[in-house]
Design a protein around this nucleic acid. Structure first.
Lengths: 195, 195
DNA sequence: CTGGGAAATGAACGATTGTTCAGTTAACCT
DNA sequence: AGGTTAACTGAACAATCGTTCATTTCCCAG
């Protein structure tokens, strides 16, 4: 038997990526076999190679898409002008955006060492440009005397680490809503960089 | 050939764990084979089973030892009394202790999903008790009016995430010394929880 | 000097890995 | 209605996986 009824390339492709994302997040890239991904989609392992050149490309595309979409979503937001407002905007955006995509976030943070050196360099560049978006806010606020941080680069990394940490413990249906969590973290971020 | 000259069990055992730690941190648990670990030590794969019942135990022991030693080292410090002093002590301790053990920290954070359910439960308990050490400080400071955080549990998690984040970017010989980094982070932590 | 046990080898086990490819089937176009 | 081709199967590839075990070697106690 070949070519199941109702099968289409433009449907199967995304399903392959979705299955890979789910399994990579669950068990880790190295622990997931192409056969497991194929089973999740309802295919034989060989069919996956119609949609990806190899396993590595599957991982790289997932991480690249995640970071590019993250940057695009951030840049789509209106400029709030005032650095303090922009920092609040960034804090809330980061938490809510990441809480909506736990699997992508997990893979993008945990599987860096499974990238080939070339792919690692590209992903790192994307991550750095996201960090720079936050640092720009801190630099502007520092210049205006609204913020006072010892080091804008370190402060940016510290804030991002703190915010991304939410993903490690947040569970839907817990005692705090997503917006409440964002409120709480904004309070700490605001004070941490205050003048 | 068997039994190299000068070989001893009490030397080889630690060397096996050391090699496993190095390789797990470098490539990830699932991507490292027992043969790679054996080669690193200068053994055949079969000999590893004189020092560990299986690969899983090797991972579990590394994580368990790391967390137990972390807790022990923290509890060995003299009680500073004042919550603000204790928080500063925790901040500096966490950063310096973790910067001294990048491989253990990496493995303990990245390989949780490769633990069996039983082992995962035990490791999680250790991690939680470390988080509780910080939360105790925050609760005491909150009661004295020194701190004002919206939620002591979340604040503890946020601070730990922020501090542990140092390990992801710090490189020896960089533009900042370890103590300077600790100073910078203490400034941010102090303000983040300030009343 | 010798026997015994600790330490390590090296081969073997079945299972699984990523990837390729010739063959088969079903959907679409004319 | 029939032929084309995209979509998929299923078998095969060599390599590698974690683990076991009979065998060999060396160190040390007596």
């Amino acid at each position: 038997m070949a070519r199941k009824t109702g099968s289409h390339s433009d449907i199967t492709g995304p399903r392959v990526r979705q299955a890979a994302l789910k399994l990579f997040a669950q068990k880790g890239y190295a622990a997931v076999s192409m056969r497991q991904i194929a089973t999740e989609v309802g295919l034989q392992a060989g069919a996956l190679y119609l949609y990806t050149p190899d396993k590595q490309a599957l991982l790289y595309e997932l991480m690249k898409d995640h970071l590019e979409e993250l940057l695009a979503a951030w840049q789509l937001l209106p400029d709030a002008g005032d650095p303090n407002e922009r920092l609040q905007q960034f804090t809330r955006f980061h938490i809510l955006y990441h809480l909506d995509r736990p699997e992508s976030v997990f893979v993008a943070y945990m599987e860096l060492r499974n990238l080939t050196p070339d792919n690692f360099t590209r992903i790192e560049a994307l991550r750095r440009s996201y960090e720079n978006e936050l640092e720009k806010i801190l630099i502007d606020g520092q210049a205006l005397g609204q913020f006072r941080v010892p080091d804008t680069k370190l402060a940016a990394l510290a804030v991002i680490a703190m915010l991304t940490g939410v993903n490690t413990w947040y569970r839907q249906g817990g005692r705090l809503s997503r917006v409440t969590v964002a409120d709480i973290y904004w309070d700490m971020v605001r004070k941490a960089v205050a003048a």
